[in-house]
Design a protein around this nucleic acid. Structure first.
Lengths: 350, 350
DNA sequence: CTGCCATTTGACAGCGCTATCATTTATGGT
DNA sequence: ACCATAAATGATAGCGCTGTCAAATGGCAG
């Protein structure tokens, strides 16, 4: 009765319930059972019911590896982030997840810890899964990584930043422009001596710093001594430390832009502890508009990024290319940003 | 020259470079090439070099699906979390990731958004990948989910909480006990009228509330009116709102325990805004010891959880079972917790 | 009742890799 | 030199599923 190999379960098969078992139980051929699951409308209702019953009775669970091998579709999207502890990435991931999961895709996640060698290794191992799409962070993949990605002929979205020559597709915003705009905004509000504090100095932090520098130059008040950076990992404590360092050295500073909200919040906490009044004694601005930004005392002026939307858009771009076999036009999407002015800066106006 | 099918590339194969191509180029049989990649020490150095050269020259990337199908090993671990925006999970995930990635495993991530029907669906789809292991959050999987998990004969770790009857393995700590201890600690410090504020009220929040209630009962000063919960999603704003509600109604309260740091921080922010002195007018305690807890004004008394370690341990348990085909003894690991006393509570002592 | 089309079902082969077992070649002790 | 043992290589046969194409079935006009 049962298929020839069922009698002596081989060590390889592990006794798993297969589609053939289901088909046999339902009295149809395996291929019909397959269709009943993948394209139900192609199978008469009578057989379909029988097959579904058999599936439930046997507790059949499809084998994804076999399906992928046969159809060269994996329904897997690989996502490579530089970090998870940085709160922007969980938000981004949520957007990606909520778009892909309903479409039947699963997410394979990897974390480079901001090391670009890691990125190459991870891209390589993730490509072994032949994912149907890949999302990578930033636009600074090294050449070999780019070649790998290109060679895989898999849809790719570079996320977070904007580039004129995407590997494939691109969803993000200009960190340079955002930072530039923020500084110009402060300048228009009357600030002149503005400092910059950054940590980790990954490519995006770098570009924010460049935005700051250009804005200062364009206003003819650039001063390299007003810039302080650290290679250390971002934290509240580091924000406090760097703030103390820069502000002690340059008490003439009127405002400081931080490369992210965590550092800025650390500085505000420190000011509260030391009795330095923000924004009267010093104004402070952050970047990202994390949830705590508006809760600080004083609330933090910062740049808001539509992270969840960015994740959604990136996922949609992938799905578009998977379905239509060609990317949406344009292949680049600018999600933009918004300068959020709060009490940590606007004293000079009044 | 080339293998029989190479001439007319079939529509299915998509012209991918296969192991046979590598073998042919290196002048060996496919199986030897396979070994050179998986168990290099089994192949003579001479052939190994040839094979590696061929791999590089052709840009060969192994097909994971084929490997899984043939070996019934997927090198995939599925992780199911209820949320990513809750900051505890990224930390946990980092610990998992950093343990599994060096061991050659990849992470398939899914997010239930705290919906238990979602959990069942996700478990089902993730099982289709035949993961080599699964990590699920909490111990309250519904019966069908448990059966699925059990039937899959895959190593499973339930994480975050402790249970006497794990599906397979269990790494976590007792939320009940942690909360109980925190309240007893406050009582020992002289507090009597202690309130509790909770949100989202997932199983872990529930158990923390139970811990609070039992500690109050054991001290014979239990009062149901001192408990306020909401089904809404946790946020700073909600913490502030619930705090206002409870404290207005019960100004006699001396301390309030919050089900997590976010709510507690929201309350502290609100107190700062309203000029309520913490801990003089009201003491506040949180849960989780997120990075911002010690930076608040005043710093927050809370319960510290070794999240990264918990993730690591869970991953190690999986690896142990995968390698040894039996779970570590004991199959349960208590990562414990630590009560962190900070300025938001200890005024009564002095 | 025949013939034509659309719909439903099935047979076959193969996706790319590895477990298993058989075979060949090198190693070393007497 | 011999044979016993170990190490290196290969042939075969699937893993579980689906693409492709062929066969069977049903419906209906003439």
């Amino acid at each position: 009765m049962s298929s020839k190999k069922n009698n002596n379960i081989s060590s390889r098969s592990m006794g798993r319930v297969t589609l053939s078992d289901v088909a046999e139980k339902a009295g149809v051929s395996p291929i019909t059972a397959s269709r009943a699951l993948k394209n139900p409308q192609q199978v008469s209702e009578k057989l379909r019911t029988k097959i579904y019953d058999a599936v439930n009775e046997l507790g059949y669970i499809p084998n994804h590896a076999a399906r992928s091998l046969a159809s060269s579709e994996t329904k897997i999207i690989s996502v490579i982030f530089p970090s998870l502890s940085n709160a922007v990435f969980p938000d981004l991931l949520d957007g990606i997840h909520d778009t892909l999961t309903p479409a039947g895709y699963r997410i394979l996640l990897a974390n480079t810890h901001y090391e670009s060698d890691q990125e190459e290794i991870l891209v390589r191992t993730l490509l072994e899964q032949s994912p149907d799409g890949i999302i990578v962070t930033g636009i600074d993949q090294n050449e070999r990584t780019q070649k790998l990605l290109l060679g895989a002929k898999t849809p790719v979205v570079q996320i977070m930043e904007l580039t004129d020559s995407p590997i494939d597709m691109n969803v993000g915003f200009s960190h340079f422009q955002a930072s530039y705009d923020l500084v110009r905004h402060l300048q228009n509000a009357g600030y002149q001596k503005i400092g910059f504090i950054g940590a980790r100095m990954d490519p995006r932090s770098q570009r924010r710093m460049e935005g700051y520098k250009h804005a200062m130059q364009d206003n003819n008040i650039s001063n390299d001594n007003y810039v302080l950076t650290s290679q250390s990992h971002t934290s509240f404590k580091l924000g406090a430390k760097l703030f103390n360092q820069l502000f002690t050295q340059h008490p003439e500073l009127e405002a400081i832009c931080f490369s992210n909200d965590d550092l800025a919040a650390g500085a505000i906490f420190e000011c509260n502890r030391r009795g330095i009044s923000v924004p009267k004694d010093i104004s402070i601005a952050g970047f990202n508009d994390l949830p705590f930004a508006e809760e600080l005392t004083p609330p933090l002026t910062t740049v808001s990024i539509p992270l969840y939307e960015m994740g959604k858009k990136a996922a949609e771009y992938l799905l578009h290319k998977i379905v239509n076999r060609s990317h949406p036009t344009p292949r680049q999407h600018d999600v933009s940003y918004k300068i959020i002015e709060r009490k940590s800066t606007y004293s000079h106006l009044t």
